[in-house]
């Protein structure tokens, strides 16, 4: 699905990530952890082609990102659902319109997925907020709406960047449950988080692989949790 080989990435003169190798196999569940500023978000961005590695190789669904033009990257992103910590909504559109945005930009009629949309909003518990605007939602509701948008195209991979960063523990568990459900449906999931309790909770429900970024490198970090 997504493969990184000896990837190095830096901002300006400094190196943030070095010699990163990672393979997201179909149906796997990964946690990506590490201190703030260690490069978790950068690594996620490399995984969906938002950034291009300085060195090494990143392959999205078998295609080397360096050989992909912007249209190819756009098409690949339709197979990757991304949940950002700040959600990235269009505030002038309703929750329903934001959730169906990936369908609209793919050139399909939103009316064709109306029943899917209702199911999806019911699944994330936002049926009554369908016509609300994003600024009217709470932090947890925004994260769930972002998750609904990430999965409406039934992507192969779901990448979530600190999805529980702005919500209370109860809402974190609710979001985790949704992501675990998606993984049980066969979706590949990777969550960047520094919340160790969330990782422990996930390990109790599903087989997860925990990776840690430390000193620019990626290490397996499951044993000490």
């Amino acid at each position: 699905m997504i493969e990184l080989e000896e990837v190095t990435y830096g901002y300006g003169a400094g190196t943030l990530l070095s010699g990163i190798s990672l393979k997201l196999a179909p149906g796997s569940f990964h946690f990506l952890t590490g201190p703030s500023g260690s490069g978790k978000t950068t690594l996620l961005k490399l995984c969906y082609g938002d950034l291009v590695a300085g060195q090494g190789r990143v392959a999205l669904f078998g295609q080397d990102v360096r050989n992909m033009d912007r249209d190819d990257v756009a098409l690949a992103r339709r197979r990757v659902g991304v949940v950002h910590q700040d959600c990235q909504f269009l505030d002038h559109l309703s929750v329903a319109e934001n959730v169906t945005l990936p369908v609209i930009v793919a050139g399909r009629a939103a009316s064709g997925v109306e029943s899917d949309l209702d199911d999806l909003l019911g699944w994330v518990g936002l049926s009554t907020q369908k016509e609300a605007l994003p600024p009217e939602l709470s932090g947890g509701e925004r994260q769930r709406a972002a998750l609904a948008r990430a999965v409406i195209m039934s992507p192969d991979v779901i990448l979530a960047d600190e999805p529980t960063g702005n919500v209370d523990w109860e809402m974190s568990l609710r979001l985790l449950t949704l992501l675990v459900e998606l993984n049980r449906m066969g979706k590949t999931v990777m969550i960047a988080t520094h919340d160790m309790n969330l990782i422990r909770q996930a390990k109790a429900q599903v087989a997860v692989r925990v990776l840690r970024i430390s000193n620019q490198r990626l290490q397996l970090a499951g044993a000490d949790l």
């Binding site: 912007r70 249209d71 756009a74 950002h84 930009v105």
Partner: peptide, 16 residues
């Protein structure tokens, strides 16, 4: 700029 960023995030092509 933010609209463009979001559209790209959800897979919009430049032409769209």
């Amino acid at each position: 700029a933010q609209v463009i960023r979001v559209l790209r995030l959800v897979g919009a092509r430049d032409a769209y």
